[in-house]
Design a protein around this nucleic acid. Structure first.
Lengths: 346, 346
DNA sequence: CTGTTAGCGCTTTCAG
DNA sequence: CTGAAAGCGCTAACAG
């Protein structure tokens, strides 16, 4: 059933040796164009499908990379890095074998060993929330790249979102619209994401000569209900902020709910900016949510591109730019307007 | 760098032959337990990672399956089948190589050939919207299963959502709450999804002895704006429906928007049920959307399970149950309430 | 420019 | 119960 015709059959049919067929098909070495074309013609005629197992075995290179992540779907982010990885891999002529570890170290180890047994050329090791992580020993045996995680030891290249820039971009947009009394609804659970965005918020506020910006940040648990409650506090402060920059889109949903219950209109009474660009959410919200898009797709692409270089033998030195920070980009929708005298909208 | 130790090294270190190592590791054939254990111990001690390329080449079986879909991310559905496929594959000891065709037949062909060259044991061929599709010739050479698509020729097993049941379930829930004047907001573009759900709607209405149910269905284009417009028509009809069953969650969003602009409260003035269970959306909506979940995960699981059987040699006869219809399940949130005298909610 | 030959690392009869 | 040997299908020296 499966491809019966092998390189031998092609050789036979074309009246040449197998090595000639191999050369003709791979284009390596020089040979008479005529022979090459004839061989190729015979190959397609016979419906020859080269056996990559055999060739990989021989060449010690599979053109397959592994993608191990702690989740392939808990969040839309995961999907975006997966897509980025696949697109870049496909562009580089690589296939990808993906495994999901559910965050379990023992299945992670098993996954890595499995990938090793398939002799993948390298692996992309992705986390779904920006964090610092140990480098699994099994990874050291092959080229690998971290995504959305910083290796505790700088022995593996990595890419993460530029959280600080993200905080700055979101805040600056609000500032640019004329807001000055801007609250930042963040999360209590610390980490690179929270800390970076808070820092970016401060940067922007300070740059705009707004003092005591620390006083404008509120901390909440990362659940819709908690956000809604905390947002209510924020929106009932006095003077009431004219805008709130949210840690993520979920927090923004909380602000929408709180605003609705307080009969505050968005964006007339309060502007809101999120982070994540969960498109489904941002577009469902009424009005649409202006938000900073996280660079998940880009991280996936960068990861396989650098992996490709490593596979090609470009050495990774722990001191060359081993981590790149990907910027976020602001996606403008309708949840922001200048502050001040109420603007009427239809 | 990559695993240097081969079966030979293990044999040498254990003082046995390679074939003994092979047997010891695979557990095939009988041998003294002592020898077997010693060999195994040596293997782990040496950090031996069997080379699956070699074994696959020899055994003519890779334990890898292909997953080709027209998109891996346009919709959250895609992700759910991908997850289902991965979970089931992993449970069956299979790896998966995924390729995305972007709906382009030529890249589809290339993908299929690539998978064939890697000698995958079978392939799951998935579409992201329920449809009927031709069977690519390249698929015939290996075991394969269709997902979310019916093959035009019944030569490949397939699984699709039971659209009619889905239509029925959504409608019956509303009926069960006491609604009788129920509108169905559907799409103008025909297909198994639309037709099935409309039919299910009719089934339920007729079973409840409600006549002229056809009159209750409205057709819209599948965009948020169009849905909102059409929903407005529906909600301004007289008598005004007390509930609307939507073709999908996007349509439900349209109803929410229309209701908001008409100052109708959900669920007090109008109940709404969607289809898809886009969780992000359903939970963002205020109140949460009650909706029928589509069986994408289940389809992915079913697909690899039947693929596994086919690979095992269980023949596929075109007349055995070659297509299975997966039911949807109703996910209850807050967008439905009994009709009638207005219920007050805090 | 083309053919011969020796493996890549493993599994599997078939002997011993 | 264990080992020797043949090969899975391909590539890469090396000859011719």
């Amino acid at each position: 059933m499966a491809q019966r015709v092998g390189i031998k059959d092609v050789a036979l049919a074309a009246g040449v040796s197998v090595s000639t067929v191999s050369h003709a098909l791979s284009g390596k070495g020089h040979m008479r164009a005529e022979t090459r074309d004839r061989v190729r013609a015979v190959a397609v005629e016979l419906g020859y499908t080269p056996n990559r197992l055999a060739s990989s075995l021989r060449q010690r290179r599979t053109r397959v990379i592994g993608l191990v992540s702690d989740s392939i779907s808990t969040t839309p982010f995961a999907t975006r890095v997966v897509v980025g990885v696949h697109e870049a891999a496909s562009a580089a002529g690589l296939q990808v074998m993906m495994t999901s570890t559910h965050g379990d170290p023992s299945v992670e180890l098993a996954s890595l060993e499995l990938l090793a047994s398939y002799r993948v050329d390298g692996v992309v090791y992705a986390k779904m929330f920006h964090q610092t992580a140990d480098v699994p020993a099994a990874l050291l045996a092959m080229p690998s790249v971290f995504v959305d995680a910083l290796p505790r030891e700088p022995i593996v290249p990595a890419t993460v979102p530029d959280e600080r820039q993200i905080g700055r971009v979101g805040t600056e947009f609000l500032l640019g619209q004329g807001h000055r009394n801007i609250a930042h609804l963040s999360i209590v659970h610390g980490g690179p994401g929270r800390d970076g965005r808070v820092a970016g918020f401060m940067d922007a506020m300070h740059a705009a000569s707004i003092e005591n910006a620390e006083g404008f940040v509120a901390y909440s648990d990362d659940t819709s209900e908690a956000y809604a409650r905390r947002a209510r506090d924020v929106l009932t402060a006095s003077p009431r902020p004219t805008a709130v920059f949210c840690f993520n889109d979920r927090a923004a949903i909380g602000v929408y709910h709180a605003a609705a219950s307080l009969r505050l209109r968005i964006p007339e009474d309060v502007s809101v900016v999120g982070v994540d660009n969960l498109e489904l959410v941002a577009e469902t919200l009424n009005p649409g949510l202006t938000t900073v898009s996280l660079p998940h797709f880009e991280m996936g692409v960068w990861a396989v591109r650098t992996l490709v270089k490593m596979i090609a033998g470009e050495p990774f030195a722990g001191d060359t730019p081993s981590v790149v920070f990907q910027p976020g980009v602001l996606i403008e929708r309708a949840s922001v307007a200048p502050p001040g005298p109420r603007v009427t909208k239809t």
